[in-house]
Amino acid sequence: MTLAPVAGARGTRDLDDATCRRIALTPTGAFAAAFAVAPLDRLTDWRAAPAAGPA
């Protein structure tokens, strides 16, 4: 988790800016992924049939 802000700060020369961007973009990306998967899961009815397991 520390590597990304430090690597970003090397490019911008501002550790605070890189840290704030990482803190903002990480939850934003997580929620975007969740909201993208939820409709696809509902559309494909992926969890409707239980998986066949060992008997």
Rank of each mutant, 00 (worst) to 15 (best):
A24V: 14
A33E: 04
D16V: 10
A32Q: 04
F31R: 14
G8T: 04
T19C: 06
P54E: 09
L3V: 14
R47V: 04
D16F: 02
L3C: 05
T26P: 00
A38H: 09
D45N: 01
V37W: 08
T26R: 11
A52H: 06
P50E: 05
T2V: 11
A33G: 08
A18I: 06
P39C: 08
A55N: 05
T19S: 13
A33Q: 05
A52I: 07
R22N: 14
A9R: 04
L3W: 14
T26W: 07
G53P: 00
F35V: 12
D14N: 15
A18M: 06
G11T: 05
L25D: 09
A48C: 02
M1C: 01
A24R: 15
D14K: 13
L15E: 09
V6H: 06
A7F: 09
T2H: 05
A7Q: 00
G11A: 12
T26V: 15
R47L: 08
R10P: 00
A52P: 07
A18F: 11
T26L: 13
A36I: 10
W46A: 01
A32C: 12
G8V: 00
L25N: 14
T44P: 00
A55Y: 03
D41L: 12
R42D: 11
A32S: 14
A51Y: 13
R13K: 15
T44H: 10
A48I: 05
R10V: 10
A49W: 11
R22P: 00
T44D: 03
A38C: 01
T44C: 05
